[in-house]
């Protein structure tokens, strides 16, 4: 199963190893790990930061989420010659510093692996139905989507 949506944490090392465990023709594995940071929507110090955003809650659309991620993997496989792809996205309550998303791509050469990994993340950011809510001492706040994410995804069309 190339795609998982789960509350549990993941072992990136094991996931990377599994991407080329049975391969004779894999020369490159590229991976990306997303980590929960203090204020998802504000790179600069912000009210949320001052209030001490301490955790995130990830909501998703069960059924569509898995289908959307699988469609992104299918699209990546259509664009590049890839040996194996793995996408894991966590949902539920996550603390700052925790892993939230894993994307791993195994291919013959690094160019395809790097590029497909970035493509999958860019599409995931704009097409997979997840919503982040920051929990702060002052209450919850839904994270706003960033124009930069739309621009990043648009590069590939």
């Amino acid at each position: 199963m190339p795609v998982s949506v789960q509350t549990a944490d993941f072992d990136a090392g094991k996931e990377i190893a599994a991407l080329y465990a049975d391969a004779q023709d894999v020369g490159a594995v590229a991976s990306f790990v997303g980590v929960v940071r203090q204020s998802s929507s504000s790179p600069q110090p912000s009210p949320a930061r001052e209030e001490g955003a301490s955790s995130l809650t990830l909501e998703h659309y069960p059924g569509m989420t898995e289908a959307a991620l699988a469609a992104i993997v299918t699209e990546a496989n259509a664009r590049w010659h890839l040996h194996k792809v793995r996408v894991i996205h966590r949902v539920g309550s996550l603390q700052i510093g925790e892993q939230i998303v894993f994307v791993g791509v195994a291919a013959a050469h690094r160019g395809e692996a790097f590029t497909a990994c970035e493509f999958i993340m860019d599409y995931l950011k704009t097409r997979a139905p997840f919503w982040k809510k920051e929990e702060t001492a002052a209450g919850g706040r839904w994270v706003d989507a960033r124009d930069a994410d739309d621009a990043a995804a648009a590069r590939w069309s």
Binding site: G34, S40, S41, L58, H60, Y61, G63, M64, A67, A68, H89, I100, V101, M121, L124, K125, T126, R127, A128, P129, F130, W131, K132, W142, V143, D144, A145, D149
Partner: peptide, 29 residues
Amino acid sequence: AAVNQKMATMDLTIVDGDEIAFFPPVTGG
């Protein structure tokens, strides 16, 4: 919006039995 669990534009036609979802822009990853 999504119709039957696929992202949809606002001009998509809906039919009996469809599952339609409305939501703000996604913020995963």
